[in-house]
């Protein structure tokens, strides 16, 4: 969950996976990430794994949110959930997320 004080990523930014991070999909749809430089591990639930897959530098946050909403149409908190996942990924330095222009 995104902390209320945390700056939200602009919906027009396109987050990108750090190329030093390896990800492996697990049998239950969750995913494990390994940062080869920091040697940190991170696990993602299936929803977060879906977000991760779309972090290709091409999909904007808004586009990722739309894609995830298409998979989980009945979930009303998709936007917040996606922002929370992106925040966690960025906090663990698994992601490149350009700063919004001031």
């Amino acid at each position: 969950m995104l902390h209320p004080d945390h700056p939200r990523p602009s919906s027009e930014l396109a987050p990108e996976r750090d190329p030093r991070v390896l990800g492996e999909l697990l049998a239950d749809g969750s995913m494990v990430l390994y940062h080869t430089a920091s040697r940190k591990l991170m696990t993602l639930n299936p929803t977060a794994a879906l977000v991760w897959e779309y972090c290709d530098g091409l999909h904007t946050v808004a586009a990722i949110t739309d894609e995830v909403r298409a998979v989980f149409p009945t979930v009303s908190t998709i936007s917040t959930d996606v922002e929370g996942v992106l925040h966690d990924l960025r906090a663990r330095e698994m992601l490149r997320l350009p700063q919004a222009a001031s």
Binding site: E24, D28, Y34, R39, T43
Partner: peptide
């Protein structure tokens, strides 16, 4: 499964030098 994977990787001696294989 996710916790099992993390546990296995925590005890992996291959993760650092052969991460793709370990994952």
């Amino acid at each position: 499964i996710a916790e099992a994977a993390t546990t296995l990787l925590t005890f992996s001696g291959s993760l650092e030098h052969a991460p793709a294989l370990a994952l």
